[in-house]
Design a protein around this nucleic acid. Sequence first.
DNA 1: ATTACGTATGTAATAATATAACACTTAGAG
DNA 2: CTCTAAGTGTTATATTATTACATACGTAAT
Lengths: 137, 137
Amino acid sequence: MSSTHTHSKKSQILTKNQRIVLDLLQNSGEPLKAYFILDSLKKEGLNSPLQVYRALDKLVELGKIHKIESINSFIICNNSNCASNTAFTICERCGKVKEIKNKNLTDGVSDLVKDNQLEITRYNLEFYVLCKSCKIN
Amino acid sequence: MSSTHTHSKKSQILTKNQRIVLDLLQNSGEPLKAYFILDSLKKEGLNSPLQVYRALDKLVELGKIHKIESINSFIICNNSNCASNTAFTICERCGKVKEIKNKNLTDGVSDLVKDNQLEITRYNLEFYVLCKSCKIN
DNA sequence: ATTACGTATGTAATAATATAACACTTAGAG
DNA sequence: CTCTAAGTGTTATATTATTACATACGTAAT
């Protein structure tokens, strides 16, 4: 074990395509669609959908981004250790998405899951809301 | 029209396309994809994707079926009054989907939502699990 | 009974989202 | 150095969903 690392340095480093896709999502902070990412990164050398989807798949697998299923979009993960569990609010009026950081909520869901004897490997929670600014206007 | 009956409230009656799509989902009990529904109902007179999507949209709106976002599929609602709130388990191995009827879970989620001052109009919860039969084998 | 209106229908075309197949490259482990 | 796992680049294609437009049909108001 100590002499032989099964985890190579390579596996911890993002490849170029993974890097530029992650950077774009990081800088945006908003959910982006795969083909928007493709268009945005044409100048960086991304030419085909598959290049984008492969990078996205890997980043999701690494827990660095999440897919928001109901809007076919990807967003940077802003929790340090949310694993593959996700919880979002999506404004029904303006479409704004926020990842829920509230520990009470996610802990509560975990408890409910335990109480109900569900063996969950991961979950995806999408809450449709009317966000503050939309509520005012 | 072969019969003379006049329904008092047309708005509560499903149209032919809505009916046959609902019947198929009802009989199946499983989540079905739009284009599978289209293929299955060719003999009933459905010819285009749009006819299917229009029926599905209406049925979702009426709360008679749900869309399971992460698998782009539609399933009959087996709760009498779940409104537009949905909670499913999806087996990661065999893909089997079950609507969660557990009142504790859904009530709990509602409480959590209240406690965390989220104003939710509806929600969509997708729990990925290893189902009983897949756990055994 | 006729009109106006909202909703549904049928059809063709196309947009948006995602994957398959294949040949090639690269980096690290042994 | 060589083997292998992972990533790349590219073309083509599959899957999912919507736009646009013309037509039909039931209901309520006139």
